[in-house]
Amino acid sequence: MASNSVAAAPKAGASPGAFRAIVEFIARHRVLAAIAVLAVLPFLTPYEALAVNILVFGLYAMGFNLIFGYAGMLSFGHAALFGLGAYGCGIPIAKFGIPWFAALPMGIAVAGIASVVIGWFAIRSRGIYFAMITLALSQVVYYSTYQWVSLTGGEDGLRGVNVPVINIFGLHLNMLNPLVKYYVLFALGAVAIALFSRILNSPFGGVLEAIRENEKRAMACGYDVARTRWLAFILSGLFSGFAGALYAIHLSVVPIETLNYFNSAEVLMITLLGGMGTFFGAFVGAYVYIMLQDVVTVVTVHWQLVIGTLFVVLILFFPRGIWGSLLKWVRP
């Protein structure tokens, strides 16, 4: 009996060890792991449209995480960049009949221009002042868009962003099929994920983290802190605008709520839930937040109270977020 219990001991510890190995593999091969998980995401959700939302908001949180998690700048104005990406892509399609493949970079460009302007003003401040400036400028964008009814649709939002079929290399992809739509957007998102990883692995990514840890020391080492912060904000805006453009194609409309400050708070919650400053955390946070929202709304109309309570509990006991806590456990 004793020998049997001794022999069983290694098996008891095999499961945690295997789990650690999986987490470590995902962390080391983050692009491959992210693409592999997102490739099967539609089969891990109740319906395909929910998977599209998780993909889009994961990309949005990924862009936001560049300045919040990696550069240490808290922005309350990213809804403006996400929303302008959506409007910048949706208006050419709905108003001028421009093909989606031309409208998509237009949406990214509009968000990029806005991030240049907002970032130029915001980087001159620090901490809560930075957050308040981004919030104030975001509200300027919101009310300007709200009042420009002839172009944006105002309170009713922009309608008619119809992309029913996409033709690629002779293939006719029916975008009215949620699964087909997901994999089209996933293919575009995979390029953005690989590019984001390349940015983090570059010397620029290292400078960002140096500024986050000790700005004065980075400045003493000769780095142009102001210019680096500005460039980080612009890059973050481009990724957020890309997510917004995909959101417009997904919904076929652009609600005015995409520019609302609540959308900035939402991406902050997603990033904190997943783990700020972690590559995979944006998608983990998006999955948990959107799945919880979908499940809880079936049970009660007070879903925000339930999710808010859970969010507070997670922040208190797992301040690194879900994925960040797993990484800490694997790499103590």
Results as ranks from 00 to 15, higher is better:
Thr271Asp: 04
Ala218Trp: 06
Trp120Leu: 15
Leu41Ala: 12
Leu66Cys: 09
Leu158His: 03
Val141Phe: 04
Thr278Ala: 07
Lys328Ser: 14
Ser252Gly: 06
Ser144Gln: 10
Met106Gly: 11
Ile270Cys: 02
Ala192Glu: 07
Leu176Arg: 10
Phe233Ile: 14
Gly205Cys: 11
His78Asp: 10
Ala286Pro: 05
Ile113Ala: 14
Ala103Ile: 09
Met73Asp: 12
Val225Asn: 06
Ala51Asn: 01
Glu213Val: 09
Arg217Asn: 10
Val149Ser: 07
Phe311Glu: 06
Arg227Ala: 11
Ala282Trp: 00
Arg229Leu: 13
Thr134Glu: 02
His78Tyr: 11
Leu171Val: 11
Phe19Ser: 05
Phe169Arg: 09
Leu185Pro: 07
Ala243Lys: 05
Gly277Leu: 02
Val184Trp: 10
Phe121Pro: 14
Glu155His: 05
Tyr182Glu: 02
Ala245Tyr: 01
Leu38Arg: 01
Phe311Leu: 13
Ala248His: 04
Val298Met: 11
Ala39Asp: 10
Gly88Gln: 04
Ser3Tyr: 12
Thr45Cys: 05
Ile67Glu: 13
Gly72Val: 08
Thr297Ala: 08
Ile128Gln: 08
Gly77Lys: 05
Leu66Asn: 04
Ile67Thr: 14
Ile168Thr: 03
Ala111Leu: 11
Gly13Lys: 06
Ala111Ile: 07
Ile211Glu: 00
Arg159Leu: 12
Leu171Trp: 15
Thr228Ser: 09
Glu209Trp: 02
Ile133Phe: 04
Thr228Val: 15
Leu44Phe: 09
Gly275Gln: 02
Gly244Asn: 01
Ser325Thr: 15
Ser236Glu: 07
Thr45Val: 13
Val141Pro: 04
Val284Cys: 11
Ala136Tyr: 03
Arg20Met: 14
Leu259Gln: 07
His172Gln: 12
Val330Glu: 12
Gly170Ser: 02
Ile199Pro: 09
Thr309Arg: 00
Met106His: 01
Ile35Phe: 00
Ala18Val: 14
Asn167Met: 07
Phe68Gly: 11
Val149Glu: 13
Arg198Asp: 12
Gly153Lys: 03
Gly83Arg: 03
Val37Thr: 07
Ile307Met: 11
Leu81Tyr: 08
Ile256Leu: 15
Gly63Ser: 09
Val295Tyr: 15
His302Gln: 14
Gly285Pro: 04
Ala80Tyr: 03
Gly13Ala: 13
Phe204Met: 06
Gly119Ala: 08
Cys89Asp: 01
Ala9Asn: 10
Ser202Asp: 15
Val52Thr: 14
Thr152Cys: 04
Phe233Trp: 08
Arg212Val: 09
Val301Arg: 10
Ala33Val: 12
Thr258Ala: 09
Leu292Glu: 02
Leu188Gln: 01
Met73Ser: 09
Thr145Ile: 12
Trp329His: 08
Ile67Lys: 06
Ala243Asn: 06
Gly90Ala: 04
His172Glu: 13
His78Pro: 09
Ala131Tyr: 04
Leu316Thr: 08
Leu179His: 00
Leu238Asn: 01
